[in-house]
Design a protein around this nucleic acid. Structure first.
Length: 967
RNA sequence: GCGGAUAUGGCGUAAUGGUAGCCGCGCCAGACUUAGGAUCUGGUUCCUCACGGAGUGGGAGUUCGAGUCUCCCUAUCCGCACCA
């Protein structure tokens, strides 16, 4: 064999390992560049060809930057906590750490074969105590912080405690779960337990009874991004709404900064938009609607005091949020969510039974039922009335599921004429509809009766009508005017609402980071920082306990001895000096939210990362990973980073400057067609009548090559096919194919190892890049890899004679050869900068084709070629570079710059391409006319030579110095 | 429903507003071969024997010139979804 990748690739991988070629230094005069991949969860199935796609792209970029003289940090690690290892543990009793270790070893083996330039000395694993120590540490910092909305920054909770002691809640501007009002005296009179409970209202990591996504099958709660259509992302089990005491992160405090930060980063618009949608910022007004005066006698005692909190209006009132304050004159009723705390107190006796029944029904509905019946209108009248503060009209108060408890205030003013949901509700219950806006362009004097409408007019483009002092204004101006008026009256103000919810941070699982929290007389207390890490304990069983507690409830040794500062047996809990530890663990996103910092200084035992190190690396320059993390990981990681920024630890507010989403690789399944009559007979795809006579069956893609079935392998594949007979076409069995998800059950998983074994890592790398634009989702199709393999061998032959003896000439290169080389340098450089790796591979192929037809074996051309190829196909580049007699690694050699002067030919030197046409590229003076240019070209002796006296069919002048002559 | 993206040969794709289809797969023909799933050469958008004509999802527009820019429509994919 001429080109022997089996020998070359392991050799250079070993060379890189032994020479620590890719180890990054934390002290360097070179400019820094940080290239990061989203670290993988090591699943039992191993890597498939989709995983390396992003890794290859980032590897190319990292190598390129290194060749440009940057000190490149390009680390890799494992997101090692996760559900599959735990479920495997429940079934088999094998410790998840063992499963994880085994899977990691397998991943590493697969990754190593592809020749990545990772600095493995910096590897991190989220399940490693030396790593999760800092996850726990960050949790403690979150616990000990609150968010000041005045300075838009996290601050120590002790500041708030001091303030409470002096001034009570007076004058604070903070992010909180609910507005609490208390005086300094009241604060100072509180018990420790009450103080603790009050502070939970402000902490950035807090414990609260909140409605959570509870998944009974998984036995755990899930974050919003872990639930899709009422089903868990992992496993697809139903999820229900349940009130539980849980840890949460107050990510909502950062909502505005999370929106603003998107302006500073270089991400795709679509991903930024996904994040904006998820945060869901909307501007509008908060308005207080008082309860009608003659209703007050109906109110239960005690409710008055509660409603008194709805300052600043003295009367009991409801706070609503609207984005359309201009439509306030069109309000005809009000709707509360079924969870609204004032329902019981305002409902009149005659409606009590009905309302209670409705509320109970609504609360017991699962998320999936709710979402499936979004269009179905339901609701109930409370018997109570509120007053529209601008018109003094009384409006009925209803309760309905379509108002959500978690958004705004859980109460809305309903404007059926201009909101489709209110419209549907009004239609269903026969409530009045009043038009207050006419669409732009229609006549305000000719109004139709809203009762005859089939839909509401939701558009903001319009003019206000029937709206008191704002009549005649544009909607936009109306909104401003109403907000001004509400402000003046003291019954409302401009406000901003976010769709984003706080992140639920507890999981009732074993395989995760333990919380550094114990419960001292019921008060959640953090472990001293110097006692971290709090190690995950051993348990007998990985299931929840018999009493329904999380798996850590099974641990024999899971209590905190405060005096001796150590973990002791659970049986010793006395609630004097020995206390129970938290039983939940942290969710998957905990460990992945700050791992990019830890890579900078992974073995630091004293700090998360040293200040001088983080000040050198700053943040991630390039982050490559899947778009499926758009609302989960990327949101949490940005929050985490902003928090560390507030603490003064992170130098930049945004963790990931540029982000590339590699597209998903889908599977390409192959089918054989089995006869309906004869189970042992298989018809080739294109046989007439095959469709009616057969049923398709998935067949392992590894026994199919270019859609041609290997019949012998098929017979051996499964016992039931041993006797298989075939109806062939042209002597071959042609399989059908379809694009499906890559999955074991469809036998369409393509494993990178198999391809490396057959074609080598360089071919795999080039081919994965050649498939198409990196960001695009595409099906895996091994047909075509041969083309790239051919290219590699052609390249090899440029350096070798027919006897496979190394043969390179020191003669100076011709202009034409240099042109070919520098065209490639120019194209490849520009393509790498644009992450357009598929076109750079094309450029290499064209370059080698051209050099092949020129029979060029000149060192002057070949040496730079190996250097620019090194990021893409490092092994063969390394080998050829050394055959040329060079020392050191080609992957560190200076990336050559394009010398443009080679690209401009002497006029008419030779035709650039023959394709039935001749193309001449010439230098023309600026502003030359078309006629003159054609004349000059036609008269040139070189043109005459090529024409050989014949008349061309057509002569076309194209600006950019090109004249085409069609023969 | 809202938002985002995409649409080019048999297939993957390529074209700073300037020859549409580079590069590769597949296919066709040829060369060298005992052989080829090796290698090399040529061809390959469609219609047409040819001359020639048509052509970047459909329709308008801007421009000397549009795959590319603008507007409308259609289809597909992705995200969010009773968020007031």
């Amino acid at each position: 064999m001429d080109y022997n990748f089996n020998e070359i690739e392991p050799k250079w991988q070993q060379y890189w390992r032994e020479n620590k070629t890719y180890s990054a230094s934390n002290e360097s005069d070179k400019p820094h560049f940080y290239v990061l991949d989203m670290f993988p969860y090591p699943s039992g199935a191993g890597l498939h060809v989709g995983h390396p796609l992003g890794y290859i792209a980032s590897d190319i970029f990292a190598r390129y930057k290194r060749q440009q003289g940057f000190n490149v940090l390009h680390p890799m690690g494992y997101d090692a906590y996760g559900l599959p290892a735990e479920q495997y543990a429940i079934q088999t009793g094998q410790h998840p750490a063992i499963t994880t270790e085994k899977n990691i070893a397998r991943y590493r083996e697969q990754l190593d074969k592809i020749g990545f330039c990772f600095d493995w000395d910096r590897e991190v694993r989220t399940c490693d105590p030396q790593y999760y120590k800092w996850t726990q540490w960050t949790f403690i910092q979150l616990f000990n912080s609150y968010y000041c909305t005045r300075c838009q920054k996290a601050k120590p909770i002790s500041n708030l405690v001091d303030h409470f002691a002096k001034n009570g809640s007076e004058g604070i501007q903070v992010a909180c779960s609910e507005e609490l009002i208390f005086s300094a005296e009241e604060w100072n009179a509180m018990s420790e337990e009450e103080k603790s409970k009050t502070l939970m209202n402000y902490r950035l990591a807090y414990l609260a009874d909140i409605p959570v996504n509870w998944c009974p099958q998984l036995g755990t709660v899930l974050a919003n991004d872990e639930v899709v259509n009422g089903l868990s992302v992992r496993g697809g089990y139903p999820v229900e709404r349940k009130l539980m005491r849980q840890w949460s992160l107050r990510i909502t405090a950062y909502a505005q900064r999370l929106v603003d930060g998107l302006e500073q980063v270089d991400w795709t618009d679509s991903l930024k938009e996904i994040q904006r949608n998820w945060i869901g910022r909307s501007e509008g007004a908060a308005v207080w609607f008082p309860l009608a005066v003659d209703q007050k006698q109906n109110i239960l005692p005690g409710a008055m005091a509660q409603m008194g909190q709805c300052e600043p209006v003295a009367e009991p009132s409801f706070e609503i949020f609207t984005t359309r304050p201009d439509t306030i004159f069109g309000v005809t009723f009000m709707v509360l969510c079924p969870e609204h705390e004032m329902i019981a107190s305002i409902t009149t006796p005659e409606h009590k039974e009905e309302v209670e029944a409705y509320v109970t029904w609504a609360k017991n509905r699962s998320e999936r039922e709710r979402q499936a019946e979004v269009k179905k209108v339901s609701g109930v009248f409370t018997g109570a009335y509120a007053v529209n503060p601008l018109t003094n009209e009384q409006i009925p108060i209803w309760v309905s599921e379509y108002v959500l408890a978690g958004y705004g205030t859980g109460a809305i003013m309903a404007v059926p004429a201009h909101d489709s949901r209110d419209f549907a509700f009004a239609k269903h219950f026969n409530l009045p509809i009043r038009q207050v806006v006419v669409p732009a362009g229609s006549n305000p004097d000719e109004l139709t009766d809203p009762a005859t409408w089939t839909e509401s007019i939701d558009s903001k483009a319009g003019i206000c009508v029937n709206s008191g002092f704002i009549t005649g204004m544009k909607v936009k101006d109306g909104i401003k005017a109403i907000i001004g008026k509400l402000d003046e009256m003291g019954i409302g103000h401009k406000t901003v609402n976010f769709r984003l919810r706080d992140a639920i941070f507890s999981r009732q699982r074993y395989w995760g980071e333990p919380f550094p929290i114990y419960y001292k007389n019921g008060i959640a207390t953090t472990l001293p920082e110097e006692c971290l890490p709090l190690m995950l304990p051993e348990v007998k069983e990985y299931k929840p306990t018999a009493t329904g507690e999380p798996p850590l409830g099974n641990a024999e040794k899971w209590a905190w001895d405060e005096a001796n500062r150590c973990v002791v047996e659970t049986s010793k809990i006395d609630n004097k000096t020995i206390f129970p530890l938290e039983l939940s663990t942290m969710p998957g996103f905990a460990g992945s939210s700050g791992y990019y910092f830890r890579y900078m200084d992974p073995r630091n035992d004293k700090e998360y990362f040293a200040p001088d190190v983080v000040n050198y690396w700053q943040n991630v320059d390039l982050y490559v990973g899947g778009a499926e993390h758009g609302t989960g990981h990327l949101m949490y990681a940005r929050f985490w980073c902003k928090f560390l920024f507030d603490l003064g630890l992170a130098p930049k507010e945004e963790p990931f400057q540029k982000l590339i989403n590699q597209g998903m690789i889908q599977g390409r399944s192959n089918f054989v067609y089995r006869s309906k009559e004869d189970n042992n007979l298989f018809l080739s795809k294109n046989i007439e009548g095959r469709e009616e006579k057969t049923v398709p069956i998935h067949v392992d893609i590894n026994i199919v090559d270019n859609d041609i079935l290997d019949i012998e392998k098929f017979r051996q594949w499964r016992p039931e096919f041993a006797e298989a007979r075939f109806e062939l076409e042209d002597g071959k069995y042609v399989c059908g194919w379809e694009i499906e998800k890559m999955s074991k059950s469809m036998f369409n998983v393509q494993n990178p190892d198999d391809l490396v074994a057959r074609y080598g890592a360089d071919t795999l790398r080039l081919y994965e890049m050649f498939l198409g634009p990196i960001e695009q989702a595409k099906p895996w199709d091994t047909n075509g890899i041969e083309g790239v393999f051919r290219f590699i061998r052609k390249l090899w032959r440029l350096f070798h004679n027919e006897q496979n003896v190394f043969n390179v000439s020191d003669e100076p290169a011709t202009k034409q050869e240099l042109k070919v080389l520098h065209t490639a340098i120019k194209k490849v450089t520009a393509d790498i900068e644009n992450f357009s790796f598929n076109t750079s591979v094309s450029a290499f192929m064209m370059c080698v084709n051209d050099l092949g037809s020129l029979k060029c074996n000149k060192r002057e051309v070949l040496e730079p070629l190996t250097i620019i190829l090194a990021p893409f196909a490092p092994h063969i580049a390394e080998e050829l570079y050394h055959l040329l007699g060079n020392e050191g690694s080609v992957t560190l050699a200076q990336f050559p710059a394009c010398n443009e002067s080679y690209l401009v030919e002497d006029a008419f030197n030779y035709p650039v391409s023959f394709n039935g046409k001749m193309r001449f590229q010439i230098e023309l003076p600026l502003g030359i006319s078309q006629e003159d240019a054609i004349k000059a070209v036609m008269e040139h002796e070189s043109t005459q030579h090529y024409l050989g006296g014949k008349e061309p069919k057509k002569v076309i002048f194209v600006p950019k110095r090109i004249v085409n002559i069609v023969m």
